[in-house]
Design a protein around this nucleic acid. Structure first.
Length: 815
RNA sequence: GCCGAAGUGGUGGAAUUGGCAGACGCGCUGGACUCAAAAUCCAGUGUUGGUAACAACGUGCGGGUUCAAGUCCCGCCUUCGGCACCA
């Protein structure tokens, strides 16, 4: 027996596929287009890891199936090539990020090709190419023109170790996502994208898209819509007034003090001179605090009195104004009304500083004075509103305030605008110029791209590396022609990845970002596959970009990704996340060398529930090698016997084989569609087992055998593409198996003459009977009661009820 | 604290949505082939008791609904994700 030489075979078919351009996307056949996309990867130095294979290999299987089902599959690939790792690597080794990145890309391209995937490399996109980031910059300019990009001086997250500003999303539990160092605050002028403008729409479209419910929930929480009211308070003895946001307008009569965030601009305006020193001191302390300290919920609340008083608009009460850092400056108005009787945080604060506590909602009397009552209930001590329910009072109180122009219903979102400036080198330069005379001046479109200079000192010292490059920095103002400076920052890499899927179909376009008519045909993406870790960031930003570009008139669809799948994570054999430091990494290369790409892909398909993932395990892969050997043997045996055997009819055996054959067609088609690859492979194994059984019969029908082997190979092809192509050739069929039609199951083959019916007594299985299909209840009952075993059990008991499920089960209830 | 998801043999994992729990594999046991081994093939394999037929138990725990529950309802436990002073 010949042993399948996978290296030779894989090489042979990869070359042939490339030479015959079999996976090239057909631009003419747009009606059948199907855009299948995996999240592109970061070009890191090492070879592909198991996660890449799991994501790309198996999504490729899905794409191959779709192709065989007649779709014109658009399956591009590219690289998310800007970012910190290359820069950090450069700082460590002295190798320039550009050099290491392009070298890594080359390695990864070759590896991806050796996987045997259907990627059409003609459409490749690399985000660090000037041809690409020219358009990233262009989009920035458009966002700026439309008021969706703006500059703001704001306290930002500062990582002292990376020496850079971080987005909220890059701060995990108060620490830097990358280096785990504690993040502190710093005031800088930064560029923001106004994603909050789209908060409501980003929320509204979630129900319509075919995404995992969990992911939608995460986005839902992240956007954090909250319905409440904005209420205006006057300041006692002054013309000044300020607004607060509250979800509990019903507790307005219980307000006993007000709190401003220490960063609030109002603080200095209202603070009385005798309190100024204390207030300044407090502001300074809270400014210095790191997020990890400030966010800690165990920490005792602190604050200081400003000396000023506000007037409660509903009852004219004079209430003290404090500042405290438990109030966030960038949510709502940065000021809150404190109701210690009905809010835990306010209660804690009031207890500490001996502020009055008023109860205005009837709650549990016994718990009073010890705990705040935070539920809804009936109002008390609230003048005209006493006796109303919280729900009613909320509206009625705001209605009353509205008449006095002191309040209105208001929706707030937890979502913050997206901070995109990075004080880093290896990224897309921000196409803006700062002129002393003209202020902020956008780089004219004709001057794009603003190229990233090669020779730059990028060791981090807190200053943007680009600011240190004279050649880059110094520029003449496009408006007045005077000397000016370029913006020294680069864009967050999430900006690059927020629109790459829009560039793929038109990646060579030099005159526009993409052709509108064309991408309206090509998009949205039909199937998007990638890690769940991007649920809140990339996937939200990409949605925002799509909507913004739509409103600016560059495309016509609302959502970028119609259907989304997250692959699970393959863990180390010890059940932990793979990491070099834990020494539990699995290198695919070891297995590829021993078994080849197909067996490795098949094992990934079979060994895990795709969306779950799980710990790596060696044992399974040998079983897959065995399985593919079994297929090879049956093909060989068939070819050697083909010549000298006749044809006979063995109806029952044929029927049995046919049943398994069509069960497999149906099962693989339906399960692989849902990314349930493990059960798809299980159906193929069943089919192979049935083939062996049938093959062992003396008078087998060779035509039936051949037809079944043919279907087996077709069903196997997406999962083991090189192997299936090779077997296809050995069967004497024409190239290529991937140009064949996907098999259809025959419903008749799934209908058997007889079925097994389970006989239960009181819900417990007592016997099984083989009966003709669709046998009526009466007949089954007669048979069951004619069964001595059943008779014995029910002997002296009374039959109360008989439940019958056709072709499945009969339950006899006895007493 | 809040919001999600999950918990099934020794093991990876199935189960058409209320109808035979454990498909398909791995592992294990026995057998065939072999001088022998590997490979391959065949049979068995949830647990407990029994020589056996069979019986009882069994999908994290405790209740419930139902002729029938891994699946539905109520109350817990554990693990993993997400958010976290958002007023």
């Amino acid at each position: 027996m010949t042993v399948y030489d996978y290296k030779l075979i894989e090489n042979k078919w990869q070359k042939k596929w490339e030479a015959t351009e079999i996976y090239k996307f057909d631009k003419e056949d747009i009606e059948n287009k199907l855009y299948c996309l995996e999240m592109f990867s970061y070009p890191s130095g090492a070879n592909l890891h198991v996660g890449h294979w799991y994501n790309y290999g198996l999504t490729d299987s899905w794409a191959r199936m779709k192709r065989m089902q007649g779709y014109n599959v658009f399956h591009p690939q590219g690289f998310d090539a800007f970012g910190l790792p290359a820069e950090n690597y450069a700082i460590k080794t002295g190798i320039h990020p550009k050099d290491s990145t392009y070298k890594n890309i080359e390695t990864m391209e070759n590896q991806l090709k050796s996987m045997g995937a259907t990627f059409d490399w003609d459409y490749e996109v690399v985000t660090c190419n000037p041809e690409y980031y020219k358009w990233t910059q262009w989009i920035f300019l458009k966002l700026y023109e439309n008021g969706l990009a703006y500059r703001k001086n704001a306290p930002v997250n500062w990582c002292p170790s990376c020496k850079t500003v971080l987005a909220n999303e890059q701060v995990i539990d108060g620490s830097c996502e990358r280096c785990k160092d504690v993040v502190t605050k710093r005031d800088l002028t930064q560029w923001f994208f106004k994603i909050t403008e789209y908060a409501q729409e980003l929320l509204d479209f979630l129900p319509q898209i075919d995404w995992p419910e969990k992911t939608k929930k995460i986005q839902n929480n992240w956007i954090g819509r909250s319905e409440g009211a904005e209420i205006e308070f006057n300041i006692d003895g002054s013309d000044l007034c300020f607004k607060v946001f509250t979800t509990r307008a019903d507790t307005l009569y219980g307000v006993t003090y007000m709190v401003l965030a220490p960063e609030s601009e109002l603080v200095d305006k209202i603070t009385c001179s005798e309190y100024q020193e204390k207030v300044n001191e407090y502001k300074e302390i809270s400014q210095k605090q790191s997020d990890i300290e400030r966010m800690s919920t165990v920490r005792e609340k602190t604050g200081v009195f400003t000396g000023a008083y506000a007037i409660n608009p509903v009852n004219g009460e004079k209430i003290p104004i404090w500042i405290a850092d438990y109030v966030l400056a960038n949510y709502g108005t940065g000021c809150v009304m404190a109701v210690p009787g009905h809010d835990e945080r306010d209660f804690e604060f009031a207890m500490k500083y001996n502020l009055p506590i008023k109860r205005v909602i009837k709650g549990d009397a016994s718990a009073e004075d010890q705990l705040p009552f935070t539920e809804y209930g009936q109002l008390v001590d609230s003048m005209d509103f006493s006796g109303q329910s919280s729900d009613d009072a909320k509206n009625n109180i705001v209605e009353k305030l509205k008449q006095q122009k002191k309040g209105e219903l208001k929706v707030n979102f937890r979502l913050r605008d997206w901070l995109v400036s990075r004080q880093r080198y290896w990224g897309t330069p921000i196409p803006m110029i700062h002129c002393e005379k003209c202020g902020i001046v956008p780089v004219p479109e004709k001057d794009l791209p603003v190229e990233l200079p090669y020779n730059v000192e990028f060791t981090p010292d807190g200053e943007s590396p680009l600011a240190k490059s004279e050649e880059f920095s110094n520029v003449t103002c496009p408006k007045c022609g005077e000397k000016a400076k370029r913006d020294p920052d680069t864009l967050d890499t999430f900006v690059c990845s927020s629109w790459y899927f829009l560039r793929y179909p038109d990646n060579r376009n030099e005159s526009e970002v993409f052709n509108k008519e064309w991408i309206n045909k090509m998009l949205p993406v039909d199937k998007y596959v990638g890690g769940a870790e991007h649920a809140a960031l990339h996937l939200l930003y990409a949605r925002f970009f799509t909507k913004a570009l739509r409103d600016m008139g560059y495309l016509d669809f609302d959502e970028p990704f119609l259907s989304l799948v997250h692959q699970g994570t393959i863990l180390g054999p010890d059940g932990n996340r793979m990491s070099k430091s834990k020494g539990n990494t699995i290198s695919p290369d070891t297995y590829i060398n021993e078994y080849g790409s197909d067996v490795f892909r098949l094992y990934l398909a079979f060994g895990f529930a795709y969306t779950e993932g799980g710990p790596w395990n060696d044992d399974g892969i040998k079983a897959i090698a065995k399985f593919s050997n079994r297929i090879e043997r049956i093909v060989e045996k068939f070819m050697s016997e083909k010549v000298n055997s006749g044809k006979s009819t063995l109806e029952n055996e044929e029927k049995e084989l046919n049943f398994v054959r069509h069960t497999a067609i149906k099962g693989v088609t339906e399960d692989a569609e849902k990314f349930q690859f493990n059960t798809s492979v299980a159906r193929l194994m069943e089919l192979v087992n049935a083939l062996y059984k049938y093959d062992a019969i003396e008078n087998k029908n060779l035509q039936v055998l051949e037809g079944t082997i043919k279907d087996l190979l077709l069903l196997l092809a997406p999962f083991a593409p090189h192997f299936a192509e090779e077997m296809w050739e050995q069967m004497g069929y024409n190239y290529s198996i991937f140009n064949q039609k996907w098999p259809q199951f025959d419903p008749n083959a799934l209908v058997l003459d007889t079925v097994e019916i389970v006989i239960q007594i009181n819900g417990k299985v007592k016997d099984k009977m083989e009966v003709p299909l669709d046998l009526a209840k009466n007949d089954v009952e007669k048979m069951a009661l004619g069964n001595t075993r059943i008779l014995q059990i029910i002997e002296d008991k009374k039959v109360v009820k008989v439940i019958f499920v056709p072709n499945k089960l009969m339950n006899i209830v006895v007493k």
